[in-house]
Design a protein around this nucleic acid. Structure first.
Lengths: 251, 251
DNA sequence: ACCGGCTAGATTGTATACATTTACCTCAAA
DNA sequence: TTTGAGGTAAATGTATACAATCTAGCCGGT
């Protein structure tokens, strides 16, 4: 289970370029809308054009870049409704995952893992009233909970689709959780989210497919509320990964 | 509106390689599970390694290939449950599209297009009782109906996600329609499908989001029935695009 | 006889040179 | 002044040479 201990050696230049370029895009360091020159990326990252091109293609599939008809790629921009839709799509897919888990029956062991994760979040939420550094633990555990939920569907096809939908940081279950820390409504949202987690597990355990689906969808919509609140707090908004890519209609 | 008249000239080698390779994969000409050598593809397609590599990466994202940890790609194989899940996923996404169209209100013009398409299918279904060559028209119109339905959601994010989900021929709305022609239950399924189309349009027009969602999901499940029937007719099964990639559990 | 390491071949990953297309700037004519 | 054509420069698309890695087969040891 400690399979994550892979050292960073022996990773291809393509992967390194992909990771570095993604960070550059999400940080807003690259101008959006206009063509992203390959050579400029080459001299920034220090690798040859070939792996850069590979990374560009993969980041296009990821959704961070869009292909220009005449060739090349440009950094995408995202509207508020783009993000809303992406969250709703995640809700639909996670809802299906929860339904699969409920109706087809989740394995004992995996359900226990999910409950453990749930209990850990309970502990975390109980002891500290707004402790700042504990929020990184919360972010980690929340991501873990959702990953376990996805796996509970026991459907490779669905997990693949969910992964692809969550590739955009705005659509990810962890997308707006980091920003939540700086929000005055933080405690409120955390309370709601964790209760939804509990109900979700209960629904799956009781094989209530429709209920699990509805809960997962509603749970995803909490991210929309987080987004709305974050729009009112600049310091919170800056914590959102890729916030530089979001263009609001009215400034 | 006649923007589809682009001649096939001026397409890059990458795209040509992608199309040719996809056909090779779907036709079953390439051994699945084992590594697909780049050089063998190069000498088959007559282009250099660079565009071949690009095509391989894109086909992996498409889902027809899987990356081998030690490098390279292999042709994927699909189980019956993979296909079932893919269809269910499409149902969930098309359901969301139908819901968006219903709840957010579809534009007059696009709804009219959808109704026109519907009427064309009605005409086709009415006149000929099992005419073989009319089925290609039906396949075309059915694809058009679904494309219009997707567009009716008016959500770029959702359309993108649906496109990606439908990249696999098994998951596409047209995936098993071609095979339907050879099925004894052909007429029966066509009747059901077209009625679902009608109800779907009605639900969208009446702004019945939940009903539209449920109908779209159930409509997708018709593809599963088509698949089951096709399993019993070899000549029908062979009409399914990529049938060579499907491995059944019990032979 | 079986297991382990080593060597040779093949294959992928990377870099770079070349070809082709695109975009922009200039200049001339209306 | 504006518009169009032409040319030049830069960027992408392609091919290929080179490097690093993996695979497989063989030999030697236990």
């Amino acid at each position: 289970m400690a399979g994550e201990g892979d050292h960073e050696r022996a990773v291809s230049h393509t992967v390194k370029a992909q990771l570095a370029l993604r960070d550059l895009i999400l940080s807003g360091a690259l101008p959006q809308g206009e063509r992203l020159s390959e050579l400029s990326v080459v001299e920034r990252l220090g690798v040859s054009r070939t792996p850069v091109r590979m990374a560009l293609v993969r980041l296009e599939e990821e959704g961070l870049l869009e292909a220009i008809p005449s060739g090349g790629f440009a950094v995408r921009a995202f509207s508020e409704s783009d993000i809303d839709d992406a969250i709703e799509i995640r809700g639909a897919l996670e809802g299906l995952a929860a339904r699969f888990a409920a109706e087809r029956g989740a394995s004992r062991g995996r359900l226990a893992e999910l409950k453990d994760c749930l209990a850990e979040i309970d502990d975390l939420a109980g002891l500290s009233e707004g402790s700042e550094e504990s929020f990184s633990d919360y972010v980690r555990l929340n991501a873990r909970f959702h990953a376990l939920l996805h796996a509970l569907s026991d459907s490779p096809a669905l997990m693949r689709q969910i992964d692809r939908a969550c590739a955009l940081p705005f659509a990810s279950p962890s997308g707006f959780v980091a920003a939540q820390a700086r929000l005055p409504q933080s405690r409120f949202i955390l309370t709601l989210a964790q209760d939804q987690h509990h109900c979700l597990v209960e629904a799956i355990e009781n094989r209530e497919g429709e209920r699990a689906d509805a809960l997962a969808r509603e749970h995803a919509r909490l991210a929309r509320r987080n987004l709305r609140f974050a729009f009112q707090n600049q310091s919170a908004f800056d914590l959102v990964a890729g916030s530089a890519l979001i263009k609001r209609r009215a400034r």
